[in-house]
Structures are given as structure tokens and as C-alpha cells.
Design a protein around this nucleic acid. Structure first.
Length: 325
RNA sequence: GGACGGGUGGGUGAGUGGCUAAAACCAGCAGACUGUAAAUCUGCCGCUCCUUGCGGGCUACGGAGGUUCGAAUCCUCCCCCGUCCA
């Protein structure tokens, strides 16, 4: 087999927020000669550090991290864009014979990378604006009726209340001049040349929630509010995409004096709990995940993870040897 | 001590005689999701039984009685909370 196409191992650590994905990712990378690749829609943005739980340099233990701080706050993250960047990162790692260790919070992005995306038109802000406008004029149900006409099958799958998904579906149909369903049928291009090993972190619900609460408090103590203040003082528009992220929107409201710190804290903890739940729902459906019950910073769990990877052909201090696997 | 106002399901809070296991919202649980995904959306949400049905039973609107064919809704007394007057 020619090395360019050899199936090299790729590790993906999935799990809900605050389950210790980064800690496990760094540790595994250290043990196995790898580098961390973040798969997180929020860590993509530079400047938004505390609330997105980016590892500080010291916590990275010298392990290179990729796909963190690669977008300016004014830019828009998308699944397709992430896929492109991740493919580039993978090519780089392959060239240097390093093991990629993905830390995955955004399930959609991982799926976009591994399974590919159908070849669909990109979003068009102008078209979306027009659709939103006529939706307002014609009242509820309008977008759903439009989609039914363009693509009945897609309309059945999307709830009439889900404006965001309806708009994307309509947008695709109009721009491609073809039903979305048909475009989906033409298939996607899955990732080639990598053998994916997924490890899932599944701490108990109560313990996870407790961590979420504690982490929120720690973020507050680390000057999260100050970070938000300086982002806004630096001239960033209040409606920049990252201000939609959990915590950033609440702290923006604190600075506008529409929320007290205590209210913000409670709202953030709650939103984070719900987010973790949605992640769990998504990851439960992910195929072939090796689930470990606990947190990623637990040494015992780390050993288990390492053991499992070894059993599956990931070789310590890999590099040239791994190519022979 | 007196005068009002109020006590409703985990929370807020609608409901002033039957259409009410009780609006709405929140929380919670479950789920969907191929380019906004830390987003967006959907379902369930007192207990229980079965032949899982716009099905049956039980419990529920501070407490105890009462009126009524029927009460969260009306009456009586009691308890508690708030405001005001002494």
C-alpha cells in the first residue's frame, strides 16, 4: 500500500461539554505522539477564550493544537468551512506522521468531516433576508408551504416551526434549482485514508452537572466578564456571531445592565446543562463509539482509553512504524 | 385587635359553578437535526391499570365542613402570607 493512501489511525474524543475532552485529548497526544485538533464551533473564534473553555498554553503541555483561534469574530463558522480546514490539518499531520486527536464538542462538524457533506450551495445572505422578509409578511406556515412545493419530502422532515432549517432547505432548492432530497441522494464524500477510533466520555449526569456549575464559577473568577467587556470596548459589534454563544450573550446583558451577575450565572449554568444534554443526544447516535464512564481528566479512565487505542493498533511513539500497520 | 388583598401542579401564574388533570411560560425528561449547530426545532411532563383509547380508576387547587346533579370556582369556620389601620 502506498503511504499516501495508507489508513492511518485518527482518534476522536467525543462527549458533552465539561466532560474533560481536552484533558484526555492532550494526554493521549502526549502518550502517542499526536497533536490535538479541536472540533468545536466556538473555539474557532479568537478572542473568545474563557467562556469557550479553551485550554491555556500551560495546559497544552507543549502539544500543538489546531483549529483554535482561526476565525475572527466577524467571520461565520460553518460545517463546510470546518471540514475544509480539518482536511488541511489532516494533510499536515499525515505529512509529519503525527497522530490526530480530535476533541469533539460539535457533533455536526465531526460528521461533516468523517461522512462528508452533500455538494450543496453555500448560504446566501441576500436570499435568506428575502425569505425571512416574506415569511413575516405571509405569516406562520408560509416557509413550510414553499418548501412543500419545492421538495415535499424535505418538508415532511422539517417541522413547520423550524425557520432556520426551512430557510436552509429552501435556499438550497432555489440556488441549485433542484430538490434538496435529490441532492442528498447524490451522496456525500466520506473521509478517505484514515481509520477512525472514537472514544466517548460519559460521566454520570449529576456529576456532569456539578462540573458544569463549578466550571462556570471558575470562569467567572477568571475574569470572564472582563473579557467580554474588553471585546465590546474593542469595538466588536454586539451582534457578532460569538455573542450568541452560551455565556457571552448573558454577560453582554450584564454589561447592558439588563441582568445581574447572579441571574447571568444561573442562566449560563442552565443553558450549559441543556447544551450538554443535546450533545449527549447527538453522540448517542454516533456509530462505533467506545464509551467510557467518567471524566477525561481521570487517570484511570485515561489509562483505559490508551489501552483501548493500543488494542486497536495505535502504537506508542508512532510515526514511521505506524505506517506499517 | 381591625380592614383589605392573597394562598392553584417542581417554579412563576391564568382560571370565578360543568367544555379543568387544570391555560401560558419556565424548569425537567426524551428526541430530531447534511453548511447559524454553545444554533434551531419536536414530543412528553400528577399517580396508576389495561384490550394503548379523543380508554378506565385514583389523587389534586391552604385545612375542615357545607350548598349543588356537579366546586379550584359559592357559603361557614379555621390556619398561613402580604399591605394598611390601631
Amino acid at each position: 500500500m502506498n503511504p499516501e493512501n495508507a489508513h492511518l489511525p485518527l482518534v476522536a474524543v467525543v462527549g458533552p461539554t465539561a466532560s474533560g475532552k481536552s484533558a484526555l485529548g492532550v494526554w493521549l497526544a502526549e502518550q502517542l505522539g499526536g497533536e490535538v485538533v479541536a472540533c468545536d464551533s466556538t473555539q474557532l473564534y479568537s478572542g473568545f477564550d474563557i467562556g469557550t473553555a479553551k485550554h491555556a498554553l500551560a495546559e497544552r503541555h507543549g502539544v500543538p493544537h489546531h483549529l483554535i483561534d482561526v476565525l475572527a469574530p466577524e467571520e461565520a463558522a460553518t460545517a463546510g468551512g470546518y471540514r475544509q480546514m480539518a482536511l488541511a490539518a489532516l494533510a499536515d499531520l499525515r505529512g509529519r506522521a503525527r497522530l490526530p486527536v480530535f476533541t469533539v464538542g460539535t457533533g455536526l462538524y465531526l460528521r461533516a468531516l468523517l461522512e462528508g457533506l452533500a455538494d450543496l450551495p453555500q448560504r446566501s445572505e441576500e436570499l435568506r433576508e428575502r425569505l425571512r422578509h416574506s415569511a413575516l409578511e405571509h405569516g406562520p406556515g408560509y416557509l413550510h408551504r414553499i418548501l412543500s412545493r419545492l421538495d415535499g419530502e424535505a418538508a415532511q422532515k422539517i417541522s413547520a416551526g423550524d425557520e432556520q432549517k426551512l430557510i436552509r432547505a429552501i435556499e438550497v432548492c432555489l440556488l441549485a434549482k433542484m430538490p434538496l432530497t435529490e441532492l442528498h441522494r447524490s451522496g456525500r464524500a466520506p473521509l478517505q485514508g484514515w481509520r477512525v477510533l472514537k472514544i466517548g466520555l460519559a460521566p454520570g449526569r449529576e456529576a456532569l452537572y456539578a462540573r458544569i456549575h463549578a466550571r462556570t464559577d471558575a470562569m467567572f473568577a477568571n475574569g470572564w466578564l472582563e473579557e467580554v467587556r474588553s471585546l465590546l470596548d474593542g469595538g466588536l459589534p454586539e451582534d457578532a456571531k460569538p455573542f450568541d454563544f452560551i455565556g457571552y450573550r448573558e454577560l453582554r446583558e450584564v454589561l447592558r445592565r439588563r441582568l445581574t451577575m447572579d441571574e447571568a450565572r444561573a442562566a449560563i449554568q442552565q443553558a450549559t446543562r441543556r447544551y450538554a444534554k443535546r450533545q449527549l443526544t447527538w453522540f448517542r447516535r454516533e456509530h462505533a463509539v467506545h464509551w467510557l464512564a467518567g471524566f477525561g481528566d481521570d487517570p484511570l479512565l485515561q489509562q483505559e482509553a490508551l489501552q483501548w487505542l493500543r488494542e486497536h493498533g495505535v502504537i506508542q511513539g508512532r510515526g514511521a512504524e505506524a505506517r506499517r500497520v
